[in-house]
Deep mutational scan, measured.
Amino acid sequence: TFVALYDYESRTETDLSFKKGERLQIVNNTEGDWWLAHSLTTGQTGYIPSNYVAP
């Protein structure tokens, strides 16, 4: 799992909003700078900017 370093507000319907400190499970990280992730807090799935999270 990864932890959010910053808050992120989604800009498209495929993005995932999250708050700093939220735990995220990475589903697919082969898309370059945008990873498909599942929030362990909200249960939602969407794309996140990879530079906003850390292991």
Rank of each mutant, 00 (worst) to 15 (best):
T1P: 08
G43E: 05
K19Q: 08
T45L: 09
L5Y: 04
D15K: 08
G46F: 01
G43R: 06
A37S: 02
T14I: 11
W35S: 03
D7A: 05
T42P: 00
L5C: 11
N51R: 10
F2P: 01
L40I: 10
Y8I: 01
S50W: 06
E9V: 13
A37P: 00
S39G: 02
R23N: 09
E13S: 12
E13M: 10
G46K: 01
Q44L: 14
P49I: 02
A54L: 08
T1E: 15
Y6R: 13
V53A: 05
S50H: 09
A4V: 11
R11L: 12
Q44C: 10
I26S: 04
S10H: 05
D33T: 10
T42L: 03
T1D: 11
V27N: 06
T14D: 12
P49M: 06
F18R: 00
P49H: 07
P55E: 11
D7M: 02
E13Q: 10
K19S: 09
L40P: 10
T12C: 15
N28R: 09
R23I: 15
T14K: 13
V27A: 07
G21C: 07
A54I: 14
T12I: 11
V3M: 08
S50A: 14
P55A: 11
D33H: 12
K19L: 07
R11F: 11
Y47C: 11
G46D: 00
T42I: 01
R23W: 14
H38L: 15
Q25K: 13
Y52V: 07
N29M: 15
E9L: 08
S39R: 05
T14F: 14
S17P: 07
E31S: 13
E22D: 14
N51M: 10
F18C: 05
T14R: 14
Y47G: 02
I48L: 05
G32F: 10
G46W: 00
V53F: 07
F18L: 07
E22T: 05
Y47F: 12
D15E: 15
T42W: 02
E13C: 13
D33Y: 14
T42G: 04
T45D: 07
V53P: 03
I48C: 02
K19D: 03
S17F: 04
K20P: 02
Y47S: 04
R23A: 10
S39N: 14
F18T: 02
Y6N: 06
T12W: 13
T14M: 12
E22P: 00
Q44A: 11
T45A: 07
A37G: 05
V53M: 06
G21Y: 04
P55D: 09
D15F: 09
P55Y: 09
E13Y: 07
I26E: 01
W35I: 09
D7I: 01
G21P: 00
N28V: 10
Y52M: 15
G43L: 06
V27K: 08
V27W: 12
L36C: 11
T41Y: 09
W34R: 14
T30I: 11
